[in-house]
């Protein structure tokens, strides 16, 4: 399992989290290259069907990134993300997926470095969990 490289998909909102993620690059922070990012307009727009599809297709982890609560560009889209994420996470746990495989994180423009740390932490966590068992 030592050389297992988790595949992670991240959905990030167009606003604070995009600025935060990009500032990780601007500030020259570094994180493991396991994350593939997909831009959406708001964390509240991410469709659980797409997340489940990612797991089906072999993602080891999915992370949704949005503005901090109370700071959504669209006022409260991120609360919607939070509600949906928790119910989805509970359901995925019943599917036998460890809850660490689905994360919801808030990233602000000032948190480039924290974001870098977060990706490291998520990657490590998934490395520890090992690959998601696929249906055969």
């Amino acid at each position: 399992m030592d050389n297992f490289e988790p595949k992670i998909i991240g959905f990030y909102c167009n606003w604070s989290s995009q600025m935060g993620i990009d500032s990780a690059g601007v500030e020259g922070a570094s994180y493991p290259p396991n994350l593939r990012l997909i831009r959406v307009m708001c964390s509240g727009s991410v469709d659980p069907e797409v997340i489940i599809e990612a797991f089906k297709k072999g993602a080891d982890g999915v992370v949704i990134l949005g503005c901090h609560l109370g700071n959504c560009h669209y006022r409260n889209g991120n609360y919607n993300a939070l509600r949906r994420y928790r119910l989805l996470q509970k359901t995925l746990e019943q599917f036998g997926l460890e809850k660490e495989r689905l994360r919801l994180e808030w990233v602000s423009v000032a948190e480039g470095k924290r974001f870098a740390g977060l990706v490291g932490e998520i990657t490590e966590e998934l490395r520890r969990l090992g690959p998601l068992r696929q249906f055969s």
């Binding site: 469709d47 659980p48 069907e49 997340i51 489940i52 599809e53 919607n80 509600r83 949906r84 928790r86 119910l87 989805l88 359901t91």
Partner: peptide
């Protein structure tokens, strides 16, 4: 995925 869609609506 019917369940995914439904849980999405319910949580919303």
């Amino acid at each position: 995925d019917q369940g995914a869609k439904m849980l999405s609506a319910v949580s919303s």
